[in-house]
């Protein structure tokens, strides 16, 4: 496992990368709309339910683009298996306070199979677990998107790091990803959970106030997220991630790399000749 393979299972074409980038930008705007919206403070602002319907469409377009031109059967099978394992891990760990194992395999999978695979795996894992544990709801597309980013950035980490440093890097990333995921999902839920300040009606001091200056809203949001999640769930998730990656990471990486070696997609050019430069079996 010292030799880190440079190739990845689902290569991201330039076109797919552009689509993924655009969709990420849109997603970010949809998550952070309370901080971006310039509204008239005297008017009633409803949470933009439009976004709840729009994001699934965007996700569908991205997934269609990444799998455009066909996904290799081996990659697909591994994607299915990893999504299932992830869904089970999430289901198993959901009940235990803060012990969410969702990201552990997602990060390792993204690391081994590359950013494109990581993104798709993040989406499918959350989707599969939602189907399993009654988690389908308006939040799901946003969770899928953010989990997709977690997997994607795991795949974009520097490839040349290996051995113990690789684990250190992944642990650090795992902690970062846990907090970032919590923060982004909080940003999404904030206007829904606390409501939006409506002129004429009162609301909480932490609610989103349309039309208020950006700093004011940011401040409210930061206090909200510190109060609600950072002390509890997010930190629990970060610790679980770090521990799981540090302790199980090396063994699971070996296993994943063995699978990756066998699931390597030969490029068309190589197959058409009669000599396939595949892995040599011992």
């Amino acid at each position: 496992m010292s030799a880190v393979d440079q190739r990845v299972a689902v290569p991201l074409r330039l076109r797919s990368a552009v689509v993924l980038g655009l969709a990420s930008l849109i997603g970010l705007m949809m998550l952070g709309w309370p901080l971006l919206l310039e509204a008239d403070p005297t008017q009633r602002v409803d949470p933009p339910f439009l976004f709840l319907g729009l994001l699934p469409v965007i996700l569908a377009v991205v997934l269609a683009e990444i799998s455009e031109g066909g996904m290799d059967a081996r990659v697909l099978a591994i994607l299915g298996v990893l999504s299932a394992v992830n869904a089970v891990l999430r289901g198993v760990s959901a009940g235990t306070a803060g012990l969410e194992l969702v990201f552990f395999l997602l990060i390792l999978g993204g690391r081994v199979f590359g950013p494109g695979f990581g993104f798709v795996l993040g989406c499918t894992s959350l989707f599969a677990s939602a189907l399993m544990t009654a988690g389908v709801g308006p939040w799901l597309p946003f969770q899928m998107l953010v989990a997709g980013w977690v997997g994607m950035f795991a795949g974009l980490l520097p490839r040349r790091v290996s051995g113990r440093w690789e684990i250190v890097m992944l642990v650090a990333y795992g902690v970062l990803a846990a907090y970032a995921y919590g923060l982004l999902m909080n940003l999404w839920g904030w206007p829904f959970i606390l409501g939006i300040q409506v002129p004429g009606q009162d609301s909480t001091d932490l609610s989103y106030a349309p039309g208020a200056p950006l700093l004011e809203n940011l401040h409210r949001f930061v206090v909200y997220t510190l109060l609600t999640s950072t002390g509890g769930w997010d930190t629990g998730r970060a610790i679980t991630n770090a521990l799981a990656i540090a302790l199980l990471g090396p063994a699971v990486l070996t296993t994943l790399r063995r699978a990756a070696r066998r699931a390597r997609v030969e490029r068309r050019g190589a197959v058409s000749s009669r000599d396939v430069a595949g892995p040599t079996l011992p």
Binding site: G80, V81, A84, T124
Partner: peptide, 14 residues
């Protein structure tokens, strides 16, 4: 189709 098949596989694998 691909992603859907992956989901079918996942549901079958669980």
């Amino acid at each position: 189709y691909e992603v859907g098949t992956a989901m079918v596989v996942a549901i079958t694998v669980i």
